[in-house]
Structures are given as structure tokens and as C-alpha cells.
Amino acid sequence: MITFENIDVVYPNGFKGLSNVNLQINKGEFVAIVGLSGAGKSTLIRTINGLVPFTSGTLTVGDDVVDPRSKAKLRRLRSRVGMIFQSFNLVTRISVLNNVLVGRSAETPTWRSLLGWYRAEDKELAFQSLERVGIVDKAYMRASSLSGGQQQRVAIARVLAQDPEVILADEPVASLDPPTAHKVMRDLRRIQQELGITTIVNMHHLDLARSYADRIIGMRAGEVVFDGPVEEATDAIIEEVYQRSLTAEDIVASDSATQGTVTSAAAQD
């Protein structure tokens, strides 16, 4: 369970990233955060693992109180909280397997990381993670040789290798084409349901949020302005969050419509 109590984030340049956020995210929930760019979605997500330090309030993840000032505590917290990024953030020059093993860092002695000499059980965990996203056969390929959708799945495997309680995903499908975006979202949804991992996803595509999440949080100007189950997030409500009417850019296109037409891309995946 993740609890935000009166969380404020003020950036060093004085910009207010979050103001007075109060949230409670239950274990195993799949939450989508929607909002226009600059609304504070990324800040909210990055506050949870301390990549963005909050400036006031109390934040707890599970039983631990997040303390942005203690590097050691943050590292322990981050080992339990995995993160997925819009641009995948893989080290493209090394193999897929070594990228996944980056997720084992917190459990690996530093000397092993330095030598690249991983324990057999860590490697097995990495292989299992790759198996969950269906690209175990690519383990020894260079990460740069994979397609965008495959790279994002390597990133998901890296997170799974952490054996996390929480997965944070910051615009995970924003740089993917619609069919691949749906695939990656389905992977995330399946993993959340199979392993019971709390999953918090930022997105600007409303239709993806509605089809994969249990709950939607709407943000505007650093504040939570809507919080409720998917059924309650009607177009009218979201237009209220965005403060404008919905446009074609707010949706990715339907899953079934794209799956038939873009067969070549799907076959490649």
C-alpha cells in the first residue's frame, strides 16, 4: 500500500511540481494517472521511488516511510519498486540479459557487478523475467538490435528481475505504435494480475487507461483533481480534468481495429 499525506514537491527552481497530494493506492491495484503534460504525472510517479524528492508531507510505501535524504534507505526502497520509462532506458551496447541483470543490482555484491560475474540464481531469475515477456530467445542479443516494443519488454523484464512490490511506469507506451502499445499494456496488465504487483502507469492516452486500469487518477497543475474507478471516468469528467474537450490525439485507436491492419509489425514482434 502506498500512502501520500499532504505531499508537496517544489523543484529547486521554485516550480511547484505537486501540491498537497493525498492518495492511497492499495496493494495489487492497477492505477492509471492521466493529465496534460506538465500536470505533475511524472513528478507524482518519481516521488514514490525518490527520483524526485518531495519537500513536505509523509509518503509511505508498504511499511517504509520514504526518506529522500538517506541514500541507503532510498536504495533499499528502490530495490522493491521497479520503474519503466518512456524511452526504455536500456544500455543499448550490452546484451539483453545484462540489461535485465541491472535489475538485480541491489541484491548483487558490488564486486560481482564490477566483474560482470553474476550468480547462477540471479541469471535464472533474469531468464524467468524474460520468459514472462516472451523474449527469452533474445537474451544474448545486443539490446540495440531489438525493436521498440521488444526493448520496452526488456525494460519490463529488468523490473521483474527486481522481484518488485510496485511497478511504476512513466509513459511506457508513448513512443510505440498503437498495436505495440496495446501489447505492452497487455503484458503489464497480465503481470499485475499474475503476480499481484501494484502498478502505477502515467499515460496521456485515455482509451488505454480505460481499457487496462482499475482506477484512474486525474491531475492538473500538480493537484489530484479526479480519483475514482474507471467506470466513473467519463468523457465529461476527463474534459473537466483536461479543461478542454477531448480530441483524436487523446486516444491511441482501438485494439481490434489496429491488430488486423498492421500485421507486418505484429509479425515482427
Binding site: 521511488n49 520503474m83 520509462f85 544500455v91 541491472v102 558490488t110
Partner: peptide, 27 residues
Amino acid sequence: GPVEAADAAGANLTQRNRLAILPQVLP
């Protein structure tokens, strides 16, 4: 990006530099 990802995975400074930075600057 990869540096941030290593941080987010709980790697310490040495691990982060070895895993996310060294491969990038090796050539």
C-alpha cells in the same frame, strides 16, 4: 536514461557507473 534506470533499480554508485556508464563510454 540508463543511468536513471540503474538508480531506479537500487544500484549503488559503483554498480551504476559500471553497468550504465562504462558500456556507453567504452568505445
